[in-house]
Simulated assay, not measured.
Amino acid sequence: MRVVVTGAGGNIGRAVVARLRRQGVEVVALTLEPATFEHARVVVGSAGDPDVVAEAFQEDTDAVIHLAAIPAPTLGTALDVFAGNTRATFVVLDEAARRGVPRAVLASSYALLGMPFSPHDLHPPYYPLDEQAPPQIEDPYALSKLVDELTGEMVHRRHGMDVVALRFPFTGDTPRLEKAAADVRTDPATGARNSWAYLHVEDAAEAAWLAASAPLHGFHRVFLAAPETLSDRPTEELIAAHHPGVPIRTPVPGRRVPIDTGAVERLLGFRPAYKLPGQDG
């Protein structure tokens, strides 16, 4: 099996490349800056450059895992973030589709809902959140992720490529997650825009591998999250304090994350393996 990974030099990208290599997959790593990957062919350049992407797809490819993006609206101008992200996604999927690549995995985001980077204090329409929750987009990054998903849906309809959009929450390695948990437990408001959700980067890599290899057809968008929140307080207590008046459609017991991850479990059989120390939910 051969898989192209864009954004291979990022935190999730490196974890994905390592996970694929453990599986015996032949990897083509597309990265913006020169980098070294054991047992992988490296292509250096922008995922928004058709010539660079064509080089990555110069061999027969079974799947592409597209992770390349500017990951926050604060890391460039609004035009850089929106146009750069959406261009890269279109170029990668278009080049892959025209070469007959049968599967694509997109790094989408919980931020697509609009809350994390909004200039205003937004509240979700309901809890637990699911894939039917309407976005409230007020920033270019969230808008780019919505367009990325629509691009994946279009490519599926036009070319028949199977596409999975993984809506990652706040994601990091163990030290990053432990720091975030300490911040949230000191001040729960710091996690409210993200619904106190997280995912370990190794779980993100496992989900990407399953999305690239599991038997499935069609276009799918799915939320991911660890089963417990970053907080040490009951989730419904957090919701009442920081998102007052938001309806809770089904109970969220204990410290359960207020995101319904049933869709990704049904689609891929994915369950996160990592929990922060002290979590037993």
Rank of each mutant, 00 (worst) to 15 (best):
A15N: 04
A104S: 06
H242F: 15
A226H: 08
L199N: 07
G191T: 02
D94N: 15
V201F: 04
L20N: 05
A63S: 08
F168H: 06
A68E: 02
E237S: 14
V3P: 05
F82D: 01
V164R: 14
R157A: 15
E149R: 00
A226P: 09
L224V: 09
A29P: 03
V147P: 09
A212Q: 01
P71L: 10
R255L: 13
L79F: 13
A15W: 03
E131C: 07
P73R: 06
P258L: 12
V147M: 09
E33L: 11
L224Q: 06
R266F: 05
T174M: 02
V264Q: 07
G269R: 02
E236L: 05
D62N: 14
L146T: 03
E202V: 09
P102N: 05
A226R: 07
R87P: 06
E265G: 14
Y126H: 11
D173V: 05
A29N: 03
T86G: 13
A133G: 08
A54N: 05
A142T: 06
E59D: 15
H217R: 15
R256K: 10
V184M: 04
P251H: 03
P116N: 11
V27D: 00
L30T: 10
P125S: 15
F90V: 09
R193W: 01
A192F: 12
T74C: 00
L146R: 13
F57V: 12
V155M: 12
K275Y: 14
A226K: 06
H120D: 14
G160E: 00
I137P: 05
A111P: 03
E131R: 09
A204N: 01
A204S: 03
V52F: 13
V53R: 06
Y110K: 01
H220W: 06
R233M: 09
T31C: 14
V164M: 06
D203G: 04
I12W: 00
F270E: 01
G160C: 06
E33T: 13
L75R: 09
V155N: 06
A180V: 01
P119G: 05
R271A: 13
P272A: 08
V264M: 09
Y126P: 10
R176V: 06
L224A: 10
T151P: 07
L20V: 04
F170S: 11
A47H: 10
D80Q: 15
T6S: 13
D173R: 09
A56I: 12
E237R: 12
T171M: 00
H120N: 12
G191I: 02
I239E: 04
V42I: 12
D60H: 12
T174F: 00
R14N: 07
V81Q: 02
